[in-house]
């Protein structure tokens, strides 16, 4: 581990009951500012397993270790991309990858920026995007998980922060 990161990791931050609300706010802010879109809650949807063939992931390391994922259908991802780019026509697959990765990165950054103990002591990885839905994510660390399901134009967008102990 890098010395700087090691120092940041020494005092790990534990999640608390406010984090779900903070994540909700962080996601909604990113969509509002970057896409001029208001996400709405999808009651009950958060209990089911996330589905969708487009997943963006950003790793977090330091005072909090974990992975933030955003998952939706490719149709939703294309719509998000078009809106982000201000495009009314079809979007290129490479643009979809970039846009979803960027949204995930911004959500992770916005979330940690709202938690004083994390802001300066948690680093983000370069995002990764998975295309396809035939996979299962299994964390080898037995940590807590924070999940949200919000509606983008009626379609579900799952946000999940899997934290390592």
């Amino acid at each position: 581990m890098k010395p700087m990161l090691d120092a940041r990791a020494r005092n790990g931050v534990r999640p608390d009951s406010t984090w779900t609300g903070i994540m909700d706010c962080a996601v909604k802010e990113v969509f509002q500012i970057m896409l001029q879109t208001d996400l709405t809650s999808m009651p009950g949807s958060g209990d089911g397993a996330p589905v969708g063939d487009t997943t963006a992931m950003v790793g977090m390391a330091g005072a909090l270790c974990g992975v933030l994922t955003i998952r939706c259908t490719s149709h939703t991802a294309e719509s998000i991309t078009a809106r982000m780019l201000g495009s009314s026509g079809p979007v290129k697959p490479s643009d979809v990858t970039d846009a979803i990765a960027e949204i995930c990165n911004m959500v992770a950054g916005n979330f940690k920026g709202k938690i004083t103990a994390l802001a300066d002591r948690c680093m983000l990885s370069v995002p990764t995007v998975i295309r396809g839905d035939d996979y299962e994510m299994v964390s080898i660390a037995d940590g807590e998980q924070l999940s949200l399901c919000l509606a983008y134009g009626g379609s579900p967008v799952w946000i999940c922060l899997a934290m390592h102990n």
Partner: peptide
Amino acid sequence: TTEGSESR
């Protein structure tokens, strides 16, 4: 950038 901490 997303890294908006004061030190950065």
